[in-house]
Design a protein around this nucleic acid. Structure first.
Lengths: 194, 194
DNA sequence: GTCTATATTCGGATAGAC
DNA sequence: GTCTATCCGAATATAGAC
């Protein structure tokens, strides 16, 4: 069962809202348009009026969520000045978003978008991850991160926190992510600091 | 297109072999029994004689691959005595397997098995990952790893290398994983060492 | 813009000959 | 054990009224 979307939303947003919940919970392939119809309280005709099909819904959702995450990370990182502070701000934003919007993060993180969005680049090439990678490159260049392969550094710095997010989203972690932020950050920074 | 499975394999193994290639390349849901039939050069009837259905094929494959990976990691870790050596041996085995059996690792690492194998625990609760987690617990207990939340430590130690494996399997890394082993290990160990 | 009813395709699965 | 032919349900998508 699924709670109806807020009545204040536009039809289009009701569709996206319901689709996100179902995609995150059951997966893209295990969710039918019928399921979205039921969950949203709309009709098939209305759904097809707003979107070309199921794939178009997933695509719109993906673009919207990636975009919002991107802005969020860029803003969080702009609030502080040193590279270590930026890295920690990014990890903090990611953790927070996992707690406040678990469905969105589940959809972004665990979905294999290439399986149902042909032509989409792998998630690691999406804007938020490119942004994180760029900051790592700069951290190496300015000497805050010790000299090493940039991919290794990016993986080492963000891999631990991202793994923790996966565990949280898979409900394996029983505590809140935010409680683990300082400890996870300290590990991450020890991994790469100069 | 897909090369036929080696003629030396049993019918059952031909099916598993072909299914793995297709599941890893196109995903479980985008692979039909027809595809497996074509790829294996067998007939539908023969496939259904050996397996109850598509899900049963995926299940057999999953159990087999998890089991083989598990044994591999346990053996690699038994060859050395100190905890740091064990951690590095595990990461080395994982990297090697990514290079020698990319399809198997793709199937294990990025498939969302819960989406098509109902009742299956999340991948992080599977035996190889439980084993890694147990070794981390012991490392903390004996003081090789500094005192901290064990989940954070496990994520910090293996998260970076696993992230690198994902990048490799997504073809984002153009170099060989083994070349990056020492550097990735050194980051991982710095993250958690006492 | 929203709805119902319906067409069409596809894929998993079965029956039964050899 | 392997094969071909076929069935059946499900899900996407369309047509067309309101």
């Amino acid at each position: 069962m699924l709670s109806q979307p807020p009545a204040t939303l536009s039809t289009r947003d009701k569709i996206l809202h319901t689709a996100l919940l179902l995609f995150a919970r059951d997966g893209y392939f295990s969710t039918s348009i019928q399921d979205i119809r039921r969950g949203s309280g709309l009709s098939i005709g209305s759904i097809y009026h707003h979107f070309a099909g199921k794939e178009a819904i997933a695509d719109a959702l993906y673009q919207q969520l990636i975009n919002s995450l991107s802005l969020d990370l860029e803003q969080a990182s702009a609030k502080v000045t040193s590279y270590p502070e930026r890295y920690k701000a990014i990890i903090g934003s990611l953790f927070q978003r996992c707690e406040s919007q678990p469905e969105a993060m589940r959809f972004i993180l665990h979905a294999r978008h290439q399986e149902f969005l042909p032509g989409e680049a792998p998630i690691c090439s999406a804007r938020p991850f490119e942004f994180m990678k760029k900051l790592v490159d700069e951290g190496i260049a300015c000497g805050d991160i010790r000299p090493m392969n940039a991919m290794v550094a990016a993986a080492a710095l963000f891999g631990g926190p991202i793994r923790l997010m996966h565990l949280y989203l898979d409900q394996v972690l029983e505590v809140s992510l935010m409680e683990l932020l300082d400890e996870s950050w300290s590990c991450a920074w020890n991994a790469v600091k100069a």
